[in-house]
Amino acid sequence: MSRARGIRGRRPRLRFDGWIAGVGTSSGTRVVLGHWQRSPFGPFSDVMIERADGERLLLAPSRRTADFVSGTYSFDTVRVVPVDVSVADDTWTVTAGPLELRFTVGRRRPAGVLLRGVPGVLAARPAWAALTNGPAHLLPTHVRTRGRAGGLRREWYGVRDMRPVGVVSAVFEGLDLGVTAPVEPPVRFGFGSVPRKPTLTRVTTTVELGQ
């Protein structure tokens, strides 16, 4: 169920279940892919890009998703383009307008093995995100699992799995972005960044709407 059940007096909450991949490139461009298998908008994927000069760009598949994502996070440019994601074994291939991205994922490390055991029902609870927010502070690049977003919204990330990203190849507007690199400096779309080391993370995200 993508819409969290509300109680009297509580603001509406929307739930998204899927994957977030954060990767860096040697050109300085950082890319964050959201691949949402369940959401209030149905399955969809979107891409957030921060270029070396600091420009923040959103690539979203529809005006509706573009409006929601850009109302939650901050961007300099928003484009509505087809966003296609395919997964074959451990290779992810993404085509999103001017972006062509491919990356591989490796075997889970101990943290990923532990997180994989988190039940989906637990991950969907904001209390779980609040509990993991403390340990998340120990990760580089300002990782946060809860915080305030745009439009007076609040957001929680319930982490359920984590795998390292290996080889990355990316082309944006016909230019090769180079080889895999740390996500550095941190991306500035919202209240937190992604791990410094390129990572694929499974999350259940809850967004509480403002009024």
Rank of each mutant, 00 (worst) to 15 (best):
M1I: 09
A4N: 03
G6M: 09
R8N: 10
G9R: 05
R10T: 13
R10A: 15
R13N: 02
L14K: 10
F16R: 00
D17R: 13
G18F: 03
G18M: 05
W19K: 05
W19P: 00
G22K: 01
G24Y: 01
T25Y: 07
S26R: 10
R30M: 02
R30E: 01
V31E: 02
V32D: 00
L33D: 03
G34S: 12
W36Y: 11
R38M: 12
R38K: 14
S39L: 07
G42C: 09
V47G: 00
M48N: 03
R51G: 03
R51N: 06
D53C: 05
E55W: 01
R56I: 02
L58A: 01
L59E: 02
A60K: 00
V69D: 00
S70M: 07
T72N: 03
Y73T: 01
D76A: 12
T77N: 11
V81L: 11
P82S: 09
P82W: 10
V83D: 01
A88I: 13
D89V: 12
D90C: 05
T93R: 15
T95L: 13
R102S: 15
R102T: 15
R102A: 13
F103T: 01
G106K: 08
R107P: 10
R107I: 06
R108I: 10
R109P: 01
P110A: 14
P110G: 10
A111C: 08
A111R: 13
G112V: 09
V118W: 04
P119I: 07
P119C: 08
V121K: 12
A123R: 04
A123S: 10
A123L: 07
A123N: 07
A124V: 07
R125L: 15
P126R: 04
W128A: 05
L131C: 08
L131E: 01
N133C: 08
N133E: 12
A136Q: 05
H137A: 15
L138H: 09
T141N: 15
V143F: 03
V143W: 00
R144E: 14
T145E: 11
R146D: 03
G147V: 07
R148A: 13
G150W: 02
R153L: 04
R154N: 10
E155Y: 04
E155K: 04
E155H: 02
W156R: 03
G158T: 06
G158R: 02
R160F: 09
D161H: 05
R163P: 00
V165D: 02
G166Q: 04
A170S: 11
A170R: 02
F172R: 08
E173S: 15
G174C: 11
D176Y: 11
L177D: 01
L177R: 02
V179I: 08
V179H: 12
T180V: 15
A181M: 10
A181D: 12
P182E: 08
P182T: 07
E184N: 11
P185Y: 08
P185D: 09
P186G: 14
V187L: 08
G190D: 05
G192A: 15
P198R: 08
P198V: 06
T199M: 14
T201F: 00
R202P: 03
R202C: 04
V203W: 11
T205A: 14
T206A: 10
V207Q: 09
V207R: 06
E208Y: 08
Q211Y: 10
Q211W: 11
